[in-house]
């Protein structure tokens, strides 16, 4: 069973980085997946188009929460323009495990929330 999720995933899940809220975020976005109840909020502090601080909050499965934590580690210091380019392949590489179609939704939710926040969308375009 230990081979199920990589150690790093379990570690991020149990000890999430950047979890909580920012005092005065420039970007704040929330979304959830009603199918399984995964729920993610992302907040960013931005200066000159560069993310200088980030936070996420939420609940859900190990995959969604660990991915959010890993992603927050990556976004700090990056430009919004770069973050707009992040895609599914990037997330899968970050996770480093094979993942079926059902769990893919869990893995992609944090990125979906991040990008929707950056694009300033009220709702994710279907």
């Amino acid at each position: 069973m230990e081979a199920l999720y990589r150690e790093a995933i379990i570690d991020h899940y149990k000890h999430p980085r950047y979890k909580g809220h920012l005092a005065d975020p420039d970007i704040h976005y929330h979304d959830h997946n009603p199918f399984c109840g995964d729920d993610i909020t992302v907040e960013l502090k931005v200066e000159d188009g560069i993310v200088i601080d980030a936070a996420f909050d939420g609940r859900g499965c190990a995959i969604s929460q660990a991915t959010a934590s890993m992603l927050m580690e990556e976004v700090v210091g990056k430009s919004l323009a770069d973050l707009k380019q992040l895609d599914k392949a990037y997330i899968l590489e970050l996770l480093g495990i094979e993942i079926g179609p059902v769990r893919l939704k869990c893995a992609l939710l944090p990125l979906k929330v991040l990008k929707a926040g950056i694009w300033g969308l009220d709702e994710w375009p279907e």
Partner: peptide, 21 residues
């Protein structure tokens, strides 16, 4: 523990259960 994680962990042991609503 999220039911999806339980189900994934049990699947690893060959056990099929349902997770969700």
């Amino acid at each position: 523990i999220h039911p999806h994680d339980l189900s994934a962990a049990l699947d690893h042991e060959g056990i099929a259960i349902r997770a969700g609503h």
